[in-house]
Structures are given as C-alpha cells and as structure tokens.
Simulated scan of single mutants.
Amino acid sequence: MGRHRRGVTREVTVADLIEELRRFDPGMEVRLAIQPRMPQEHAVGAVAEADGMVWIGEAGQRGYAPDEVGERLGWV
C-alpha cells in the first residue's frame, strides 16, 4: 500500500489502511497528497460509509506538499 505504480490498480481496504497507520505516532496530523506531478496538501475531512465502501472526505487545500512527500509516496 502507498506506492504509486502506473497502470496497476490496487484497492485499499480498511484493514490495509489501519495497518499502515499503526506505524505512526497516534498524535500526528494526517494530510492527503493529491496530484503526483505537483503534490498538493489537503486536510482530511469527514469519514462515511456509502455504497458498500468507506469514503474519506477532504477538508480543503492547505498548500503544496514538500518535495519529500512525492519521493516517499513513490511518485518521483
């Protein structure tokens, strides 16, 4: 999970996400990185269940993500 591979579709489950997040300090803030070519930083919004899936809403752009974010996500 967490690696961008062009042409490969991989669905992430709730269990996958929980397992990934266990590696981090529970007090850390969470952001969404959007757009691999020019990563933007978005706040995480509400979480809901609909249509048999869990949806994580975004709560607005906070700026552009540092270059390190794209590198760590495997986008560069």
Score class of each variant (00 low, 15 high):
Met1Cys: 14
Gly2Met: 10
Arg3Met: 14
His4Ala: 14
Arg6His: 12
Gly7Ile: 01
Gly7Arg: 01
Gly7Ala: 01
Val8Cys: 08
Val8Arg: 12
Thr9Glu: 15
Thr9Trp: 14
Glu11Met: 15
Val12Arg: 14
Val12Phe: 09
Thr13Pro: 07
Thr13Asn: 05
Val14Arg: 13
Val14Ile: 12
Val14Cys: 07
Leu17Pro: 09
Ile18Tyr: 06
Ile18Val: 15
Glu19Tyr: 10
Leu21Met: 14
Arg22Thr: 11
Asp25Phe: 01
Pro26Thr: 00
Pro26His: 00
Gly27Ala: 13
Gly27Gln: 10
Met28Cys: 12
Met28Asp: 13
Met28Arg: 14
Val30Tyr: 09
Val30Met: 14
Arg31Glu: 10
Arg31Tyr: 15
Arg31Pro: 03
Leu32Asn: 04
Leu32Phe: 11
Ala33Met: 05
Ile34Phe: 10
Gln35Thr: 05
Gln35Lys: 05
Arg37Asn: 10
Met38Ile: 00
Pro39Ile: 00
Pro39Thr: 00
Gln40Ser: 02
Gln40Asn: 00
Glu41Pro: 00
Glu41Thr: 11
Glu41Gln: 12
His42Lys: 06
His42Gln: 08
His42Ile: 04
Ala43Asp: 07
Ala43Tyr: 02
Ala43Val: 00
Ala43Asn: 02
Ala43Pro: 03
Ala43Glu: 07
Val44Leu: 13
Gly45Ser: 02
Gly45Val: 02
Gly45Thr: 00
Ala46Val: 11
Ala46Gln: 11
Ala46Trp: 01
Ala46Phe: 04
Val47Asn: 06
Ala48His: 06
Glu49Ala: 12
Glu49Tyr: 05
Glu49Asn: 03
Glu49His: 08
Ala50Gln: 13
Asp51Ala: 15
Asp51Val: 05
Gly52His: 06
Ile56Val: 15
Ile56Thr: 08
Gly57Gln: 07
Gly57Lys: 09
Gly57Met: 08
Glu58Ser: 08
Gly60Gln: 00
Gln61Leu: 02
Arg62Cys: 11
Arg62Glu: 13
Tyr64Met: 04
Ala65Ile: 06
Pro66Ile: 01
Pro66Gly: 05
Asp67Gln: 10
Glu68Lys: 09
Val69Arg: 05
Gly70Lys: 02
Gly70Val: 01
Glu71His: 08
Glu71Phe: 06
Glu71Val: 13
Glu71Pro: 02
Arg72Ile: 06
Arg72Asp: 09
Leu73His: 10
Leu73Tyr: 04
Gly74His: 06
Trp75Lys: 03
Trp75His: 05
Val76His: 07
